[in-house]
Simulated scan of single mutants.
Amino acid sequence: MKYTTALLTALLASPLAAMAQDVTAPKILVITMFDGETRPWLDNLDLSKTVAIAGLPESAPALSCNDDLCVMTTTMGFGNAASSVAAVALSDKVDLSGSYILIAGIAGVDPELGTLGSAHWARQVLDGGLMHYIDAREIPQDWASGWLKLGTSQPGQDGGWTAGTEVFALNADLAERAFQLTRDVELADSERAREYRAAYSQTAAQGDPFVSLCDTVSADTYWHGKIAAEMIENHVAQLSAGKAEYCTSQMEDNATLTALSRAATAGRVDLDRIAVLRTASNFDRQHDGQTAAESLGANSGGFGPATENAFRVGNTFAQAVIANWDDWKDGVPAK
Results as ranks from 00 to 15, higher is better:
Leu174Gln: 04
Asn299Met: 15
Arg123Pro: 05
Leu7Lys: 14
Leu7Ala: 15
Ala86Val: 03
Met251Arg: 11
Thr4Ile: 10
Arg123Gly: 13
Val109Gly: 00
Leu181Trp: 07
Arg262Gly: 09
Ala18Cys: 09
Leu42Lys: 01
Ala122His: 01
Leu213Thr: 03
Pro40Ala: 00
Thr291Ala: 06
Phe317Glu: 02
Thr38Trp: 03
His235Gly: 03
Asp253Arg: 05
Asp22Cys: 06
Gly114Arg: 03
Val185Gly: 02
Ile274Lys: 03
Ala228Phe: 07
Ile106Ala: 08
Gly302Phe: 01
Ala87Lys: 04
Gly79Cys: 15
Ser218Gly: 13
Ala87Tyr: 05
Asp43Pro: 00
Thr316Val: 14
Glu233Gln: 08
Val313Pro: 04
Met231Pro: 04
Ser64Thr: 14
Ile274Phe: 05
Ala163Tyr: 13
Gly114Gln: 01
Trp325Ile: 01
Tyr100Pro: 01
Ser84Val: 02
Asn282Ser: 09
Gly36Ser: 14
Asp95Phe: 10
Lys27Gly: 05
His235Glu: 10
Gln124Val: 11
Gly289Val: 10
Ala228Thr: 05
Cys214Ala: 15
Pro26Ile: 09
Ser64Val: 06
Val88Lys: 11
Leu148Met: 13
Gln157Gly: 05
Phe179Glu: 03
Leu170Pro: 04
Asp208Asn: 12
Val217Ala: 09
Leu148Arg: 10
Ala81Lys: 00
Ala81Val: 09
Ser59Glu: 13
Ala219Trp: 04
Ala244Glu: 02
Leu126His: 04
Cys247Pro: 03
Gly304Tyr: 09
Arg137Asp: 14
Glu191Trp: 02
Tyr222Asn: 00
Ala293Leu: 15
Phe168Met: 04
Leu47Ala: 12
Gln319Tyr: 05
Val88Tyr: 09
Gly129Asp: 10
Arg312Cys: 04
Val332Ile: 13
Gln124Arg: 07
Glu166Asp: 12
Glu252Pro: 08
Ala62Glu: 12
Asn324Cys: 07
Asn44Glu: 15
Ala334Gln: 13
Ala62Asp: 09
Leu257Arg: 06
Lys93Phe: 05
Lys49Met: 08
Asp330Asn: 15
Arg278Gln: 02
Ile322Gly: 06
Ala259Arg: 01
Gly98Arg: 06
Met76Arg: 09
Thr74Asp: 07
Asp215Phe: 08
Val185Glu: 14
Glu308Pro: 00
Lys49Tyr: 00
Gly304Ser: 15
Thr38Cys: 12
Glu58Phe: 10
Arg312His: 12
Leu239His: 04
Lys243Arg: 12
Leu11Ala: 14
Gly79Lys: 15
Ala54Met: 10
Leu277Ala: 12
Phe210Gly: 02
Ala204Glu: 12
Ala255Pro: 08
Leu239Lys: 08
Ala298Pro: 02
Gln206Val: 02
Arg177His: 09
Gly289His: 00
Ile28Trp: 02
Leu102Thr: 02
Ala82Lys: 11
Thr248Asn: 12
Tyr196Asn: 02
Ile227Thr: 01
Ala193Met: 08
Ala122Leu: 06
Ala219Gln: 07
Ala20Trp: 07
Asn299Val: 09
Gly314Glu: 04
